[in-house]
Computed example of a mutant assay.
Amino acid sequence: MALQLTREQGITLHGSVEIVAKFFSFGINSILYQRGIYPCETFTRLQKYGLTLLVTTNPELIKYLNNMVEQLKDWLYKCSV
């Protein structure tokens, strides 16, 4: 007898917040690169979702963006945006 794992499929607040946060993070990185706000040498290519995305390698910028995305997630969880 095989063990059968079942998982309910559905949209959850947690899953939606995580998706929006990732989209926002990749979007901000793209804007910073395309507008030349940071030098192109500080970005690296990443394959994600069947696309090539550019993300920063600048440690201070990564820290700042992570803090910003965490704040966004907090707002979304509390529905206070």
Rank of each mutant, 00 (worst) to 15 (best):
M1K: 13
M1E: 11
A2G: 06
A2L: 10
L3N: 13
L3S: 14
Q4F: 09
T6E: 12
R7Y: 11
R7L: 11
E8T: 13
E8P: 02
E8R: 11
G10F: 03
G10E: 12
I11R: 12
I11H: 08
T12S: 08
L13N: 06
L13H: 09
H14G: 00
G15N: 12
S16P: 05
V17L: 02
E18S: 07
E18I: 04
E18G: 02
E18H: 00
E18N: 02
I19Y: 15
I19Q: 15
V20P: 01
V20R: 09
V20M: 04
V20L: 00
A21L: 00
F23A: 14
F23Q: 15
F24G: 01
F24H: 03
S25A: 10
S25Q: 03
S25Y: 00
S25E: 12
F26C: 08
G27L: 08
N29F: 00
S30F: 09
S30L: 08
I31N: 05
I31F: 01
I31A: 10
I31V: 09
I31K: 02
I31W: 01
Y33F: 12
Q34C: 07
Q34L: 09
Q34Y: 09
Q34W: 11
G36W: 04
Y38I: 11
P39Q: 14
C40A: 15
C40R: 15
C40N: 14
C40L: 12
E41K: 11
E41F: 08
E41A: 09
E41M: 08
T42V: 10
T42C: 07
T42G: 03
T42N: 06
F43Y: 05
F43D: 07
F43P: 06
T44C: 09
T44F: 01
T44V: 15
L46H: 13
L46I: 14
Q47H: 08
Q47E: 15
Q47F: 03
K48S: 15
K48P: 00
K48A: 12
Y49V: 14
Y49C: 08
Y49G: 13
Y49W: 13
Y49F: 14
G50H: 04
G50I: 12
L51Y: 15
L51C: 10
L51N: 14
T52W: 05
T52E: 13
L53M: 13
L53P: 02
L54K: 11
V55G: 00
V55W: 04
V55K: 03
T57Q: 10
N58K: 02
N58Y: 05
N58Q: 08
N58T: 10
N58E: 06
P59C: 07
P59K: 09
P59H: 11
P59V: 06
E60W: 01
E60G: 03
E60H: 09
I62K: 00
K63F: 02
Y64R: 12
Y64V: 03
L65M: 05
L65V: 06
L65T: 01
N66D: 04
N67C: 01
N67Q: 09
V69N: 00
V69W: 04
V69A: 02
E70S: 13
E70W: 07
E70A: 09
Q71H: 15
K73L: 04
D74T: 13
D74K: 04
W75H: 14
L76S: 10
L76I: 15
L76K: 10
Y77I: 06
Y77L: 09
Y77H: 05
Y77G: 01
Y77F: 08
C79S: 05
C79V: 09
S80R: 15
S80L: 07
V81Q: 07
V81C: 07
V81K: 08
V81H: 07
V81S: 07
